[in-house]
Structure formats: structure tokens, C-alpha cells
Design a protein around this nucleic acid. Structure first.
Lengths: 263, 263
DNA sequence: TTTCAATGCGTTATAATGACACAATATAAT
DNA sequence: ATTATATTGTGTCATTATAACGCATTGAAA
């Protein structure tokens, strides 16, 4: 019989005081999008001892707004504040298997949850997606999961998800695509300065289709939310593209009023 | 001391077996839209003894999908199946006052809820909006609320809501407006046969702005989801407009694929 | 210095939209 | 009956948005 590693403090607290600290039966799941090297990526966690992938999640404190809980989870995970966060769906099927994942987590430490434990009840989960600047943070591990990986969405179909997280990720992507039509997306996924080809690649990746370079630029500039900077990105093998930044004021206005664009 | 009416059976069951039957801390709220006489209406309930309005809601059975719970609530309330139902937001602020409404409901029957009663905990609510054919159903009362009323959205600002339901209704309307841009809406709010001016009025009401009659018709027909019938609606004071119906097959396809229209 | 691929900055054809004109018609007024 | 009137059916034209594509420029690599 192999000796199990000892239970981390955070898990111990969850085990003992979970039902006291957190709302029963409610969790938040965050699909974190990042963009790097022309690939839209999702931050995934390797569920301990299960060979399956999941998305970061957490519980809601008894006196905490549910949106705030999602922010907290993200902050714990990415160290970032001021993240673009969007609630996109509630997952409330009775056969969700959160419970078995929780069970497995504790069993790897040799701890068996009692049958009626708070963690083993049915959970309803609020799904959020977050957009973050990949270049500007480092992932934090937590005690539930040992491995964090950025996975390009083009590889998603090859991964093994539990059913819940598969639908969560799919729905998040679908929502992101839909919202692209009327929300300005980019400010949160790109660094402060970026080139037009980079922005276009982001759009092409999200939409999963090629766009005409010249038409894209015309339309994007037409929204009036970009500042053209007086610098170019040197170092590439060819003609140096101009750098742009988002006009914060107009970007905020566009977030509020919508863009009305068809892609 | 005045004698209170006796507690209805449904409330009694909720009081005694609520925590056994339903998930803790989760409810569903349904904003039910109907369209009648050129006015978009919402089905509102008069919270007992509170002078405030709310929307129909309910709880989620322990082994019930949360979407199914919303359907069940709607069916109980409207008697209708096959309703267009759309989850639009989760309301999870810790200061929601569901508890006080529940308290008031029972107190009007002279029943005082114990301080730690299942109904008095914090509830997170999943908001759904439903579109129904106003001409094709009658409202059912329930034991929580004595009065049901269809209220035109133009009167909403004059009503007294508790804060929760105010934001629920506002957000529902906002979602409906947004979705109008890429979902075909109408089939569920209008009778089987309808005229183009009626459909236009519906759109104008939802969007809260006038549309050009001729351009509206051209665009709507362009979607290819309507059947022009060989009948006209006589009885009006003027030229009889043609009747239309939705092409179910194409309508379903449009629901799935989206419409891509800008209004 | 030349080559080359990516970029900047355009043009033209087609489709979608917005604004408006006029004839047709079901009822109401006379 | 006849006329008046408001509403609907249908179409046109100017404007704008989109799609498709051309060509000169440029920074690094050959």
C-alpha cells in the first residue's frame, strides 16, 4: 500500500469548513481565453488522477456575489485584476459529475469523503469566460490540480474532457463567437500595442475563418476604437506593420452600446 | 387578533418538505413575454401583502435539470408546453431579498418560518425569459401570489418592484433586444397567422423605435422564414393586409444558424 | 544589391440599407 | 351609390456597406 501525500491545508479547510464557508450546491467555472502566437488558447487543468481536463472553478462564499466569486477564482488563478469576465451560461444538469471529481481529488490524498459530504451533493455551476492578456501573467497552481496548460482551441477535439467541462468549453466558445458580432473584443486578449495583422488573426481564430486583410482593416478602423501609433513593429522578416492601441474611452463606449458588425 | 386564512397544501408541503424535495439555495425566475394589441407585455405577480411586483418563479427538484425546472414552472403557470425558453442570466447577489418575500408569504397565513428554515437561506436565481402566444392561454394562479397581471412594458417604470425583480425584468428585456439581432423572434409571440404590420409592431415594440414599413417587409421576407398566405385579414378599417405564417422548417434552421440582421 | 513576402493604400463591382413615390383597396362618411 | 380616407402592396433611386482584387512600398534575408 503506497503512502499518500498529505492533504494540503486549502483542501483540508474545504473538507472541514466547506459547508460553513460556502453556499451549498453552487460553483463557478471559468473558461479563460488567451491569445498567443496566432492561437486562441484556453487555460485547462489536469484533474488529479483522472486523465481528464477541466476548467478552473471554485465555490461561492456565503456572503459573496456570484460574479465576485468568479473574479476571486480568476485572481487566485492568474493574479490578475480588471479582467474581462462574462457570465455565459448556467449548467444545471442533475447528472453533472463534479462530485466524482471532488471525490477523486481527495482520494489521491487517501481521504475518503463521507457519503453525505457537502462536496458530494449536486452542484449547479455558473459558467464565466474571461479574456486575458497571455503575455502579462503567470498561471498559479492550486491544490486541486497539479497541471495547468494553455491549450490551443484547435486541439480541443483531441482532448479528453469529462462531459460537463466539454460542454462548458464548447458553449463558452460559441458565446465568444456570438458576442464578437456586437462587442469589441481584443483589448483584453492582446497586449497594449499590437499590429493589425495580429488583431486580424485573433478575429480569424475566434471565427474560424479567413478574412480579407484589406477589408478587415477598413472595417475595424471604421469602428473608431483604435489609435494608430507612430511606431512599427520591426524585427519581422518583412515590411514592418504599424502598431495600434485601443482608444479606451471609445472602447468602453462600444462595450456599452455595441458595435453592430457582421463577420 | 385577526384570524388568518389557513395555509394552502402546496405551501404546507414547501414548508415541511421543501428542503427534502428541492435543491438548496437555487431558484428559477421566469420573465414571460406576450404580445397583444400592439403592446409587449410581461406577466407579473403581485407579491402577497407587499404591494410589490415580481415574476413567476420556483424551485429546482433534487434530481431535475434546471432548464426543466423553468419549463415546469412555466407549465404550471401557463398550462403551455413547447414554450420558447431562454436562460439569460444568473442573479447571485448576496443581498437578494427572496427570503423576506417568502417570509411575508407565510406570515399572511399566520405561519412564522424558523430562522434557519430552508426558505430563508440565500438564494441564487437563474433567470429565464419565455415567449408565448398571448391569445392562446390563460394564467393560472398559485398559492404564493393572488394576482397575476399582464403589464405592458411601457408601464414598467411606474411599478414598484423589489430590487431583484426590477433588475431581472430589465435584463430580460435587454437580452431579448440583443437576441433579436440574430434570432428569429415572432413565432412564439404571435398567433399562427399574422399580418406584416403586426410583426412589424412587435419588432418596433421590442426595439423601441419606429421602422420603415417597406424596408421592414423587404428585409423580413428576405430571411425566407415566412409563408405568404392567400388570405387577408378583413375587418380593419382599411385595405386588408395579407396573412403570413412562419415556415417551421426554415424557422428552426434560422434559430439554429442565426439570422445576421441589424435593426 | 537583389529577392521576397508581408504590409499600406487603394479601386471596382455587387449587395444591403435608407428614404421616399404612387397605385390599390376595405371600410366609413356623405 | 359615391366619395373620402387611412392603410397596405409594390417599386424606385441614392447612399452605404461589403466582397474581391491590384499595385506600390518596405524590411530583412539571400
Amino acid at each position: 500500500m503506497s503512502k499518500s501525500p498529505s492533504l494540503p491545508a486549502s483542501l483540508k479547510q474545504l473538507l472541514i469548513k466547506g459547508d460553513e464557508l460556502f453556499l451549498p450546491g453552487i460553483s463557478v467555472d471559468c473558461v479563460i481565453f488567451g491569445f498567443h502566437e496566432n492561437s486562441l488558447k484556453i487555460l485547462l487543468l489536469d484533474i488529479a488522477d483522472s486523465n481528464k481536463w477541466s476548467v478552473p472553478g471554485g465555490f461561492v462564499l456565503k456572503n459573496e456575489d456570484i460574479d465576485a466569486a468568479a473574479y476571486r477564482v480568476l485572481k487566485e488563478r492568474t493574479g490578475l485584476k480588471d479582467i474581462f469576465l462574462q457570465q455565459f451560461n448556467v449548467f444545471g444538469q442533475p447528472n453533472r459529475i463534479e462530485a466524482s471529481a471532488h471525490k477523486a481529488t481527495f482520494e489521491q490524498y487517501g481521504t475518503k469523503l463521507s457519503k453525505d459530504h457537502w462536496l458530494l451533493q449536486r452542484f449547479v455551476s455558473a459558467g464565466y469566460y474571461a479574456l486575458i492578456d497571455y503575455t502579462n501573467f503567470t498561471v498559479q497552481n492550486d491544490s486541486f490540480n497539479s497541471l495547468n496548460s494553455w491549450i490551443g482551441i484547435e486541439h480541443l477535439s483531441k482532448l479528453s474532457f469529462d462531459h460537463d467541462h466539454d460542454s462548458i468549453v464548447k458553449k463558452a466558445l460559441e458565446s465568444l463567437r456570438t458576442q464578437l458580432a456586437y462587442l469589441p473584443i481584443g483589448k483584453n486578449l492582446l497586449p497594449k500595442k499590437f499590429t493589425m495583422p495580429e488583431l486580424q488573426k485573433l478575429y480569424e481564430t475566434i471565427l474560424n475563418k479567413p478574412l480579407d486583410r484589406r477589408n478587415f482593416q477598413r472595417k475595424m478602423l471604421g469602428f473608431g476604437i483604435l489609435n494608430k501609433l507612430n511606431e512599427t513593429r520591426k524585427g519581422g522578416a518583412h515590411k514592418a506593420p504599424y502598431l495600434y492601441s485601443f482608444n479606451d474611452k471609445k472602447y468602453q463606449k462600444a462595450l456599452k452600446d455595441g458595435l453592430y458588425g457582421s463577420w
